[in-house]
Design a protein around this nucleic acid. Structure first.
Lengths: 360, 360
DNA sequence: AATTGGTTCTGAAACGTTACGGTCAGGCAA
DNA sequence: TTGCCTGACCGTAACGTTTCAGAACCAATT
């Protein structure tokens, strides 16, 4: 008896059918308590650990798990509060449904899609991935339901997100009404290739991260509406996402154009870095410089940042619910969650030219 | 052709053996480029999504994923920076090895162990689970390697952790040398049953969370060494882990015994709450009250907390490495990572009685 | 002509389970 | 007695893949 015990060997030992042993574990009402007791006892004696989960999955066509794809370096997901909130919400939804959450390993460097094909899951959630990512393509090629959150834009796939354009427009209008006309933008990566520096209009418009694209284009339209030539507005991109990057990007903007009165950042993390850089330069916020963010993470709100709050936890929950409640529901569904402008203490009217020279 | 295509149907369509189709995907060098091209093309035409991951797992006896068990409410893992650091480290290790990370869904209320049996994984990491948890028992009953981190104490199982006793002793000696003799303790949950309040010696010693047990007993021994009767030292326990709980526990201690000169908390999160409570009461830290933590999370270190720093990220990495590099290595291995006493600005000698009455 | 060596492909045997459609004995009412 | 129902169990057929030992073929060497 070297080989590990299986359901079949257990059945043989007991002189019953495999079905009966299976029932002992899965449908106790299908056999007499006495026999069930004997089965379980013999199992213990033979060291049978219970039905093999993989074999069960093969037969039932259910893996009991949801795959999560995020192409970013994993550190990103665990360090960015917004991503973390999403992850938590998704995890809660899975937990509530008794489903596991399978984090798909992705090596951002190599385009190795094998892990996507190897994942034994009943569906995928895709978050923060560029439209043209090969991993995304691999997910879509798998015959399981998929829900996309925020980032990848995919025709005909269930989706949860926010209205980035409307939210950004609201923020832009706020700044415009305050009187800002000379603004600079700090944004996250726009495509899969690294570009730490200025991003021209061309690049902005062809961004493969459509959330960034939507926010930039909303800004462009809003400011164009008051006569600002968007092509002249400096937009700085950072590939990695952290406050250090935000600070560096802010420095780059302020070095290039000291006349800027507002720095619009497409995430709170970047904005917090920009705030730090302003402080380092002795610029008072908001008197000398207005800074805004996006996301509404706790740390930023606590710091008084003017930003857009989005319900990250709910996004995760909604994604989970959409995926797990995926019956036959005709056309793809879409859930757009509400956002809210949070006016903090980092935005104010720009100083006039006089004030710039002679103090407040 | 209603049924979805399988490897077999594809082989039949092509008039080749299943082996050949399998090789087309897994061992391209085993067949001519021309045939491979034909296989892949036909696959595309028939909508064959590539080898089924579950069937493959059944055959190869490899799931390509590591299970992570934490019995706590999932929010805990995503909100506690220490747990998060561990999670990140583990995720990095998995990612590096191309393994998925399967978060096992656990309903802390119901003792439903089924999810553990259903998880298709090659091994388990168990973190922050009481010794007597049924989920832990379920994991151990599965015939896969297991690594335990910190929390559960299990004979004969690979383990990574820190020397809680030594670290706590170091901290205690620091407080003792500063002159503290009237101390109170705030600790995390000691067992599976909820007890938000004082924990007597009995309960301390029989704690099912051995990390807490070790820290408490180290404190007891150290203070006993200078004549403090540990039975008289108030120890307050909190089931949930958050700074609000830390604050409430601190309040409970200070209400009961205003003479206390130091609050020793077994986690930074609790300590941050204790600091907030002290502030609320107008107690100056460290002049009026010394507060210490444990973990060395960024937020606490930034706040100047005196604490023990432990390498949470490395713990996760080590757990992953141990599990994934699990060959035949005789007896169970153990990795004990180093800790470091971080002396911050929240600890100082206690005020003398005179100072208490007449000010510094 | 026989041998060797290499490539390319095949057939059959697992891998361990659950779903489905039964059988069979016993009880119960008509 | 007959017919019907119910509880308890069984046999077979998947589920879709990989693995392993070889067969068939061809070219190059002895």
């Amino acid at each position: 008896m070297r080989r590990p015990a299986t359901l079949a060997s257990l059945a043989a030992e007991l002189g019953v059918s495999r079905t009966t042993v299976s029932n002992a574990y899965n449908r106790p009402d299908q056999l007499s308590p006495e026999l069930r007791r004997r089965v379980l006892e013999t199992a213990r004696r033979l060291g049978y650990p219970g039905p093999d989960p993989v074999a069960r999955s093969l037969r039932t066509r259910k893996a009991g798990a949801v795959g999560l794809l995020l192409t970013e370096n994993l550190s990103y997901a665990f360090r960015d509060p917004a991503a973390l909130g999403f992850l938590e919400g998704l995890a809660m939804a899975c937990e509530g449904a008794g489903q596991g959450l399978h984090l798909v390993p992705v090596n951002p460097e190599r385009e190795d899609v094998a892990a996507v094909h190897r994942a034994g899951v009943d569906g995928f959630v895709v978050y923060s991935v560029p439209d043209d990512d090969p991993h995304l393509a691999a997910v879509l090629s798998r015959p399981v339901p998929t829900v996309v959150c925020d980032q990848p834009r995919v025709e005909g796939v269930d989706r949860v997100g926010i209205d980035d354009r409307a939210a950004t427009t609201q923020l832009a209008e706020r700044l415009i009404s305050l009187g800002h006309r000379k603004v600079g933008v700090v944004c996250m990566r726009l495509a899969r290739d690294r570009n730490d520096g200025f991003a021209g209009i061309e690049r902005q418009q062809s961004a493969h991260f459509h959330v960034q694209r939507a926010r930039l284009s909303a800004l462009a339209d809003a400011f164009a509406g008051v006569g600002v030539v968007w092509a002249d507005v400096p937009v700085v991109e950072r590939f990695d996402h952290g406050s250090a990057q935000g600070a560096a990007a802010a420095a780059q903007l302020l070095d290039t154009d000291p006349e800027l009165t507002a720095l619009i950042c497409t995430s709170d993390i970047l904005a917090l870095g920009a705030l730090a850089e302003a402080r380092r330069r002795g610029l008072r916020v908001p008197q000398d410089l207005t800074v805004t963010g996006f996301d509404g993470i706790t740390e930023a709100v606590r710091a008084g940042l003017t930003t857009i709050r989005q319900p990250v936890l709910d996004k995760g929950k909604a994604a989970g619910k959409l995926l797990l409640g995926a019956g036959e529901h005709g056309r793809p569904r879409q859930i757009i969650l509400p956002t809210e402008l949070v006016v903090g203490s980092t935005s104010a009217p720009p100083r006039t030219a006089e004030e710039r020279w002679f103090g407040p």
